[in-house]
């Protein structure tokens, strides 16, 4: 008998979680990242679409909260979504895939949305989810950073039995600045390598600076504290040092789109460009 054999549409999160952690079960909100195979490997599908709490959007002084069921397209059309976060979705993911993919699925699926993941990482987003990771079968509630979550899943074959409740993003402040850069074969192609950065300026000095790179390590996303920038003004020289730092700390793999040598060299270029984007914004303010 072809799989999945069973379908559930629970109306509460508790009910969904009870089902979702069962071996062979998968929870989907929209499903596009999980239904693109000739034969589906799941015994049962737990459809989350009726669970209203997973579709919440909250914007307050401290956080932006995106419910796990929200489509990526609804993230774009929400007025409180930061522009660079919107851009991280729109460039390489067309509308029908954005409509077919939920926030939760964008983090758990095998199709890795690199610019979105890098920007979430740079923004310091935390993932709230409940389920079992890897070989564990016990229900747990988690709040993990994006790198922790996606790199773990990647290392474990994207085997995830649970529900992403939502993503909590610290609300950008006037002192935080973001930048992003990528390299792709065409203007709309998935990035070969990409970087997102966040710089926190206090006074004229960098108080905090992080970068997130995809395609620059063996993991999905490489988070880097840009230590060469801390405590100094964001000068050309400091940016060059951060660029070198990113290049030195990249350990990419080679594939047909780019060798490790190329990706490593580009890691520095992209971090520099993303930081320069921050400088432009700082100068504008």
């Amino acid at each position: 008998m072809s799989k999945p054999k069973q379908y559930f549409r629970p109306s509460t999160l508790e009910e969904a979680l009870e089902l979702a952690i069962k071996p062979g079960y998968i929870a989907i909100a929209r499903g596009a990242p999980f239904l693109g195979e000739v034969l589906l490997p799941y015994d049962a599908v737990v459809d989350l679409q009726d669970i209203a709490e997973l579709s919440t959007k909250i914007h307050d002084e401290e956080n932006i909260y995106l419910g796990g069921n929200l489509s990526l397209q609804s993230v774009i059309t929400w007025e409180h979504t930061p522009e660079l976060l919107k851009a991280s979705i729109t460039r390489s993911i067309p509308l029908n895939l954005r409509n077919g993919t939920s926030v939760g699925e964008s983090l758990t699926g095998r199709y890795i949305m690199t610019e979105w993941i890098a920007m979430l990482t740079a923004m310091g987003a935390m993932i709230e989810h409940a389920g079992s990771l890897g070989d564990e079968t016990q229900l747990n509630f988690w709040e993990q950073s994006v790198p922790e979550f996606v790199n773990y899943l990647h290392a474990h074959g994207h085997h995830y039995q649970g529900v992403v409740k939502g993503v909590r993003i610290p609300a950008p402040t006037s002192s935080s600045h973001f930048g992003a850069a990528h390299i792709a074969r065409t203007p709309g192609d998935v990035a070969i390598i990409n970087a997102a950065v966040r710089v926190q300026i206090e006074g004229n000095l960098v108080a905090h600076a992080t970068a997130a790179l995809c395609g620059a390590s063996q993991e999905v996303v490489l988070p880097l504290e840009l230590s060469p920038l801390i405590g100094a003004p964001l000068t050309k020289e400091a940016i060059a040092a951060a660029s070198n730092f990113a290049e030195e700390n990249s350990q990419p793999i080679s594939d047909y789109k780019g060798s490790a040598t190329y990706r490593r060299a580009m890691a520095g270029v992209l971090v520099r460009r993303a930081l320069n984007m921050c400088v432009e914004k700082i100068n504008q303010t």
Binding site: R9, A32, L35
Partner: peptide, 17 residues
């Protein structure tokens, strides 16, 4: 689907209920 463009190939029929 409810006015949104989606791909019928990557939706289970039961999801459209």
């Amino acid at each position: 689907l409810d006015g949104e463009v989606v791909n019928a190939q990557t939706i289970l029929a039961v999801q459209a209920h």
